[in-house]
């Protein structure tokens, strides 16, 4: 009986932890597009940001590309906030509270496409 009650207590605690992790994050930040494929050194593109949070009435959005940019006094929910990003590696976007506490974050993944050059002849063409 004692063992059973301990087991039930453990399951209850686990459930609460799960519920907390699932529903406490009542917010998100999304960026579109999520990937940038470039043949250049830097990726330069226009992106659109959507976000939502219940934690704060106004929020900031921090964009870390070539520099760190902060867009504050934004409402708790926003759609199609357009900016231009430029970087030579992944670009991080964060949703922050007015006190600049991180709430959510997302990334734009950057992929360098290796440029193929056209040859005058195949490799190891001897004559």
């Amino acid at each position: 009986m004692m063992l059973l009650s301990k087991l039930l207590s453990f399951l209850l605690i686990c459930s609460l932890v799960y519920i907390d992790s699932t529903f406490a994050k009542a917010g998100y930040i999304e960026v579109s597009p999520e990937n940038c494929v470039t043949v250049e050194q830097d990726c330069v593109m226009d992106v659109s940001i959507n976000w939502y949070t219940e934690v704060s009435k106004t929020v900031c959005i921090r964009v870390t590309d070539q520099q760190i940019r902060l867009f504050c006094h934004k409402p708790s929910q926003g759609q199609n906030f357009a900016i231009t990003v430029q970087n030579n590696r992944n670009i991080v976007l964060e949703l922050l509270s007015e006190q600049l506490e991180p709430l959510e974050s997302t990334e734009i993944s950057l992929f360098h496409q290796h440029v193929k050059k056209r040859r005058r002849d195949i490799a190891w063409s001897i004559f």
Binding site: H114, K116, K117, R118, R119, A123, W124, I126, F127
Partner: peptide
């Protein structure tokens, strides 16, 4: 693919036999 090359330096060496 045969008529394309990667950007950058590409080196190789071949040993064999032939004649011009």
């Amino acid at each position: 693919s045969a008529y394309l090359a990667d950007e950058g330096v590409s080196l190789g060496v071949s040993l064999g036999y032939g004649q011009l």
